[in-house]
């Protein structure tokens, strides 16, 4: 069967980092119904189809909107399709939540049994996790630790699959599994049926991993993307700073930029070409967390990123 000329294989979602200035100073969009409505209007106006968010927003969804399904109704009232992915941002306290430590696994598994129940009222594609603790809490990275970690996520993936949601791993440059050999070893121990890869173009670049080559090697198990750019590669012990090297790395105060930024290190043309070559169908999420640092502006970064998607990437594949 041939595809209709206007049928799209790619839809675009927006990861909901956002800051703006309200009458009482800087806010994020969860500040009030009014600021949420303004945010949703803006991402819809510029052409996004849907949004992603974090699961630490769950309680605000209940408190302010009546739960995930009711919040999603508001999202849909603004013309967006739905919430596509949830980022499960755990604290990774080694006392009770460290994937490389077997004694914490039951706690993590229970967390996901509860978490998946929380989100069962809406249809999700992925629950996204950073698959390891912070680098400084896992080093030295050994094959044993990677194998133990993989075994945990295989079990978690089985839980999420029971809810029809894919468990997918997002490798921050400062987490314990960020180098190319460690990523390869980790996936060699995971079950493709239960553990997918979520390619964050900037995070891999910062960790000196070519995101295009990584994607081409693992395309069969890639379940989504964060398309964002960076201008810097981590050096020295940039990846080893508490609480979070995205904020505390000594060499770089702002790591992330929107697609299309001058001097960006991610080759988005090559990335989209690889997406096309592998006939990926589904969602690509645009992200540029901390875009407001040093005078940046979320609204403008979002519009410029969307411009790049329409005027560059969709000409390659859509």
């Amino acid at each position: 069967m041939t595809r209709a000329a206007d049928e799209r294989r790619i839809k675009w979602s927006y990861m909901d980092h956002w800051r703006s200035n309200g009458p009482a100073g800087p806010i994020d969009q969860w500040h009030s119904h009014r600021s949420m409505s303004s945010f949703l209007k803006q991402i819809k106006a510029v052409g996004f189809d849907a949004m992603d968010t974090f699961d630490f927003r769950l309680w605000q969804m209940y408190g302010d909107y009546g739960g995930p399904a009711k919040y999603q109704e508001m999202v849909q009232d603004h013309g967006l399709e739905r919430i596509v992915n949830i980022f499960h941002a755990a604290d990774y306290d080694v006392r009770n939540y460290a994937p490389h430590l077997p004694e914490t696994h039951e706690n993590i598994l229970e967390d996901f049994r509860v978490t998946m129940g929380h989100w069962s009222s809406i249809e999700l594609d992925n629950i996204i996790v950073m698959p390891a603790t912070l680098y400084y809490d896992m080093e030295p990275i050994t094959e044993d630790k990677l194998k133990i970690t993989a075994e945990l996520w295989n079990k978690v993936g089985e839980i999420t699959a029971g809810y029809g949601v894919r468990l997918t791993c997002h490798h921050e440059f400062f987490c314990g599994i960020q180098s190319e050999p460690d990523i390869e070893t980790f996936y060699s121990y995971t079950d493709p049926e239960y553990v997918s890869l979520f390619v964050d173009t900037a995070q891999h670049c910062i960790a000196s991993v070519d995101p295009v080559a990584l994607y081409r090697r693992h395309a069969h198990r890639v379940s989504g993307f964060h398309f964002k750019d960076t201008r810097n590669i981590a050096t020295g012990d940039d990846h080893r700073h508490r609480p979070d090297s995205e904020i505390m790395a000594p060499t770089t105060g702002k790591w992330f930029y929107e697609m299309g930024t001058p001097n960006g290190l991610v080759d988005f043309t090559a990335m989209m070409t690889a997406v096309r070559d592998n006939e990926y169908q589904g969602w690509i999420t645009v992200e540029h967390d901390k875009a407001n640092r040093y005078g940046g502006d979320y609204a403008e970064s979002t519009a410029v990123a969307r411009w790049h998607a329409v005027n560059v990437l969709e000409k390659i594949y859509r």
Binding site: S20, S38, K41, Q42, K44, A45, V46, A299, E300, A303
Partner: peptide
Amino acid sequence: GGNPAELAMLNSWYLQH
């Protein structure tokens, strides 16, 4: 009236919707 990009986005939303 405020943040230029934000206002352009809100204006575009109003036109479209």
